[in-house]
C-alpha cells in the first residue's frame, strides 16, 4: 500500500474526532477548541491519567474531561432568545401529575422507530448518518414506566451512548421517577415516559412536531414534565 507523504496537521487530528476517521462522541468537543487549547488539554489529560493510576482515583481524569467538554461546548453556536416563557405552578408537588421526556433516543426493542426508513439501524449507522438526522422531523417513542431496562434500546448519532446502554437511567431516569412517586414526592406519573432523538431538524420540530406534542401532553393532564437533553 502506498503511504501518503502528506503529514497530518494537529488541527486535522483534533477535527477527526468530530465524525471523522477518529470519531469519538465523548471527545468530539476537541474540534471546537483552538489547537493551542486542545494541545494543553491532551497534555494535561495524559498527566492526570498517570496520577490517577498512582493515586487509584479517577476523579481528576473526570474533572479534566468535564472541563474540556465545557470549554468545547461554550464555543458552539446556538439559538439565542432574549426572553422566555414561565408557567408558575399553583399547587404543591404532592398533588401534581408528572411525566418524563428525554432527547436520549430510547425506545422499546419491540417498537423501533426505524429512523430514515432503516430497519434495525445500528448505533454506528446513526453516527454515520447524523447529518441526515439533522434534516428530519423527530419521532416520539412511548415507553411504559413498568418496562424492564432489558426491553429498552438506545440509539443516537449525537452522543456517546455507552453509559446509557449499561443503564438507561443515566439519561432516561424512568425507574428513579417511579421511586420518587412511590415515596410520595409527587402525586402521580403518566403511564408512559417519552424519548426522541434530539439530533433533528429544529425548524421541523418547532413548526411541525411541537404543536402535536403539546396537544398530547395536555390531553394526558400533566402538570409538569421532567426534560433531559443529552
Amino acid at each position: 500500500m502506498e503511504k501518503s507523504n502528506q503529514a497530518e496537521s494537529f488541527e486535522e487530528f483534533i477535527k477527526s474526532f468530530f465524525y471523522g476517521r477518529r470519531c469519538d462522541l465523548s471527545f468530539k468537543f476537541l474540534s471546537d477548541l483552538e489547537p493551542d487549547k486542545a494541545s494543553i488539554f491532551i497534555q494535561d489529560l495524559f498527566k492526570d491519567i498517570v496520577d490517577s493510576i498512582d493515586d487509584k482515583d479517577l476523579g481528576q481524569v473526570k474533572l479534566r474531561l468535564l472541563q474540556g467538554q465545557m470549554d468545547g461546548y461554550r464555543e458552539q453556536k446556538n439559538f439565542d432568545y432574549d426572553s422566555g416563557p414561565f408557567f408558575p405552578l399553583k399547587k404543591p408537588l404532592s398533588s401534581m401529575i408528572l411525566s418524563l421526556l428525554t432527547s436520549s433516543g430510547h425506545f422499546l426493542k419491540t417498537d423501533d422507530p426505524k429512523p430514515l426508513g432503516v430497519e434495525n439501524m445500528t448505533q454506528q449507522e446513526a453516527e454515520n448518518r447524523v447529518f441526515d438526522f439533522l434534516k428530519e422531523e423527530p419521532f416520539l417513542s412511548e415507553i411504559p414506566f413498568e418496562a424492564n431496562p432489558g426491553e429498552l434500546m438506545v440509539r443516537h448519532g449525537g452522543y456517546d451512548t455507552r453509559a446509557a446502554l449499561k443503564d438507561p437511567n443515566v439519561s432516561f431516569p424512568y425507574k428513579r421517577m417511579i421511586q420518587l412517586n412511590t415515596k410520595g414526592v409527587f402525586k402521580e406519573l403518566t403511564a408512559k415516559a417519552y424519548s426522541f432523538v434530539g439530533a433533528c431538524s429544529q425548524i421541523r420540530l418547532l413548526k411541525k412536531t411541537l404543536p402535536g406534542w403539546v396537544d398530547k401532553f395536555r390531553n394526558l393532564g400533566v402538570d409538569a414534565v421532567v426534560l433531559v437533553p443529552v
Binding site: 468535564l66 465545557m70 439559538f79 414561565f86 405552578l89 426534560l227
Partner: peptide, 29 residues
C-alpha cells in the same frame, strides 16, 4: 437545543418543565 424548544413550547401551553442537563450545556441553556 431540541429539549430547550420543547420546554419553551410546553411552558407556553401552561405545562411546567424542569430540565436536567450536564454543566457543559450551561451556555446553550
Amino acid at each position: 437545543m431540541s429539549v430547550g424548544h420543547v420546554a419553551r413550547a410546553f411552558e407556553d401551553a401552561n405545562i411546567a418543565t424542569v430540565i436536567i442537563a450536564v454543566k457543559s450545556f450551561e451556555t446553550r441553556m
